[in-house]
Design a protein around this nucleic acid. Sequence first.
DNA 1: ACCCGCACCTGTAAGC
DNA 2: TGCTTACAGGTGCGGG
Length: 294
Amino acid sequence: MPELPEVESVRRSLARGIIGWRVVRAEAHRPGVITGPREPRSMLLGARIARVERRGKSLALVAHDARALAVHLGMSGRLLLTSDADDPPHTHAAWRLAPPHGSAARRTRLLFIDPRRFGGLWTYPSFDDLARDRWAPLGPDALAVDTDTLERRLRDTRRPLKAALLDQSLLAGLGNIYTDESLFRARLHPRRPADSLSRTELVALARCIRAILRDALRAGGSTLADGQYVDSNGDDGAYQRRHLVYGRAGLPCASCRRLLDHAILASRTTVFCPTCQPLTPPPPVRVHAGVLAV
DNA sequence: ACCCGCACCTGTAAGC
DNA sequence: TGCTTACAGGTGCGGG
């Protein structure tokens, strides 16, 4: 479920809540969600949290002594800070955290909750090991992607744009929602071969990806009808109200008012405007008798 | 070498 | 009301 804006919202709320705090207890209730050594020390027991990092949709909790824990939220995962004593269903791991010295704050608990279990935790002796192993296959982070980078990533594949943009090894961070929103804003058909874009179209696509992700991040991400996604304080996002295509098949296009179409592409429901996102790009402006025609 | 399609899970909502 | 079916934000793998 969570894509880059949701994961970054979790990262920020988590960073505000736990940097400088010490892990005084670590428990795995469902060890199957953890990859790597699972004893409490590998799950950061005794560590002081130095930073919370993100690449694409993947998070990393990093301790001052370099120990690191990668977290992927999958479709339904949540990281939640709570003072509540009893755990909600599907709480697979829990940590108890003590505030920094001199802070009057009370201890708190961090929960990893994931009903569908598509997410998981990965333990590493150091952040370098984590980055080498877990993050190496990921492409550049989509939040700051520039035209040249995008061009290099797309020019070697003829797959449909939708499939290419969902591929985390090409570009890290886009999922089903923000891929469709970005392609709509860039006026590109999701079936366009990735290597067929003109320079002008690549400039537009890179700009639209950054703009959509920045806007969504500013809104705190998208919380859909099932209310699954919330940040680590349990707060909803608001960007779902600004979706222009995702979840709107059969409704009027925000730009031309004709009805939005949908198709299954890369096994994912894909919504687009057949008018504003033509499969065949309009022909280049023609030169007539040496004069640039309008 | 590439790319598609499906399996992995549970919850929810719609349909009969 | 209650059972059945379809679908959901992601990823990883088998096989064509």
